[in-house]
């Protein structure tokens, strides 16, 4: 498919979804223009709110890259949430006392590494089961989300609890900020650098090429000498690594404590980012920026107009469904230009 055609489909999908969204807003008695103003424009108007956007941008981009790795091998990693939670746990364990006190400033990198490791481990379960038993990674990653939620819930209610609320104590070391006037931190830079790395790996290296071959046709990959099992496993593990890092940054750059719901909706929104950005590095950045704006804006929108924040996930899902519709229709038109009524 031509890239202009693809871009057109993306833009039309966003427009169509927002159109349907405005019907929903109208039906609920609010003014769509006003709602979309709070949702899309307002977050971009001040340094402060941009900082808020960055709080969504970093995890969205990281999870989006992670999910893209899996998608390239035609695996669906729906376990972003669980992997984020485990990544957050890794960071927390290194950040709170006693370990955090010992490590001092080093608790940040060590915590990130442990978070990545935890993310890998949690995703590797699904990867292993898929490779060894051909178990659907879709269902397994999803079930692992529920299990991870309960594990984290147990940890913050009992062993890690500090104080009355079910949450851990504050970690010692935060991600350094980029500017003092907003919440934006170095996580953004790391995420952007990793996007570049992702692009290079997928397009320019043997590993990336083989991963794409696997996703394009498993049989062709076997034919071409790719150790298929190992690559499936690797795709899942890398996917988990990025989600784990997102979790670690969620703790060290945002909440500072482990608590239930620290993963937010990022696991699923990451999938939308990957689809919307059509797995392309630049696309992923734009898609996560767009989605981050929506997410940050929806909070204001809820306050000002009463439209609940869940409206964003309706919008996101609609966008992707429209993209799929557009792709299907355009490829169909290409195929049977004349054909009967098929």
């Amino acid at each position: 498919m031509k890239s202009i055609q693809k871009l057109l489909i993306l833009l039309l999908s966003v427009a169509a979804a927002m159109l349907i969204g405005s019907l929903l807003i109208l039906a609920s008695g609010a003014n769509p223009l006003e709602a979309y103003y709070y949702m899309v424009i307002r977050p971009l108007t001040s340094v402060n709110s941009l900082g808020e956007v960055s709080m969504y941008f970093t995890p969205l981009l990281l999870v989006g890259i992670g999910v893209s790795f899996a998608f390239h091998a035609r695996l669906s990693n729906l376990g972003g949430e669980g992997q984020i939670l485990f990544g957050a746990l890794g960071m927390t364990l290194m950040g709170i006392s006693p370990v955090g006190d010992v490590l001092g400033i080093f608790s940040l990198p060590v915590g990130c590494l442990l978070g990545i490791l935890f993310g890998i481990l949690w995703a590797a379960i699904a990867g292993f089961l898929r490779v060894r038993f051909k178990t659907s990674e879709i269902v397994v990653t999803l079930m692992l989300n529920y299990i991870a939620q309960q594990i984290i819930s147990y940890l913050v209610f009992f062993p890690l609890r500090s104080g009355a609320e079910p949450q851990s104590e504050k970690i010692a070391c935060a991600l350094p900020k980029l500017s003092s006037s907003s919440r934006i931190n170095w996580g953004v830079v790391v995420a952007l650098l990793l996007t570049v790395a992702y692009g290079v790996i997928m397009k320019k290296t043997r590993f990336g090429f083989r991963l794409r071959t696997l996703g394009g046709s498993e049989k062709a990959a076997v034919y071409s000498g790719v150790p298929v099992g190992r690559y499936y496993f690797a795709a899942m593990a890398i996917s988990g690594a990025f989600c784990g890092l997102a979790g670690a940054m969620q703790i060290s750059g945002n909440t500072m404590r482990l608590m239930e719901g620290v993963a937010g909706d990022f696991g699923f929104s990451g999938i939308v980012v990957a689809m919307l950005g059509s797995l392309h590095p630049v696309g992923l950045v734009i898609a996560s920026l767009f989605m981050a704006v929506l997410s940050a804006g929806s909070v204001t929108m809820q306050v000002k107009t009463g439209i609940p924040t869940s409206f964003t996930s309706v919008l996101e899902a609609l966008i992707v469904l429209f993209i799929l519709l557009g792709m299907a229709l355009s490829s169909r038109r290409g195929k049977h230009r004349k054909g009967g009524k098929a």
């Binding site: 794409r212 071959t213 394009g216 046709s217 049989k219 062709a220 034919y223």
Partner: peptide, 9 residues
């Protein structure tokens, strides 16, 4: 078509 080549490449 699907073993000898990857159709989308």
């Amino acid at each position: 078509n699907t073993v000898g080549t990857v159709p989308d490449f």
